[in-house]
């Protein structure tokens, strides 16, 4: 279970950073992390890598499978959350520029 939680957290962070570095004109990034793009791109790679090491440390080879199999689920969950603008509801953020 720890391996699964680590994997989900790592992939979720990677997805959020991926969305954050998308340009605004694509009207998908409803939030922005306050770091430079290069740092965010680095974190996008770092988070799942740490999750991979963590889950393998806890579960061995099973951790590798849990890590790889959990990726599509959390990515889809983040996509749907983002698509249906649940971030806006949760954090009450209304960025007019992004709604054009």
């Amino acid at each position: 279970m720890i391996a699964l939680c680590l994997s989900l957290l790592g992939w979720a962070a990677a997805c959020l950073f991926h969305l954050s570095v998308q340009p605004s004109y694509r009207r998908r990034a409803l939030y922005r992390f306050p770091y430079s793009l290069s740092v965010q791109r680095f974190l996008r790679l770092l988070c799942p890598t740490i999750a991979l090491f963590g889950s393998c440390l806890y579960e061995g080879i099973v951790g590798l499978f849990i890590w790889s199999f959990s990726a599509p689920f959390i990515s889809m969950a983040v996509t749907f959350l983002n698509t249906f603008r649940i971030w806006e509801t949760l954090f009450q953020r209304h960025d007019k520029a992004l709604n054009h």
């Binding site: 997805c15 991926h18 969305l19 998308q22 694509r26 998908r28 990515s75 983040v78 698509t83 249906f84």
Partner: peptide, 9 residues
């Protein structure tokens, strides 16, 4: 990669 998480229902 740019449209990796794009969904327009």
């Amino acid at each position: 990669f740019s449209d990796l998480m794009l969904f327009r229902p």
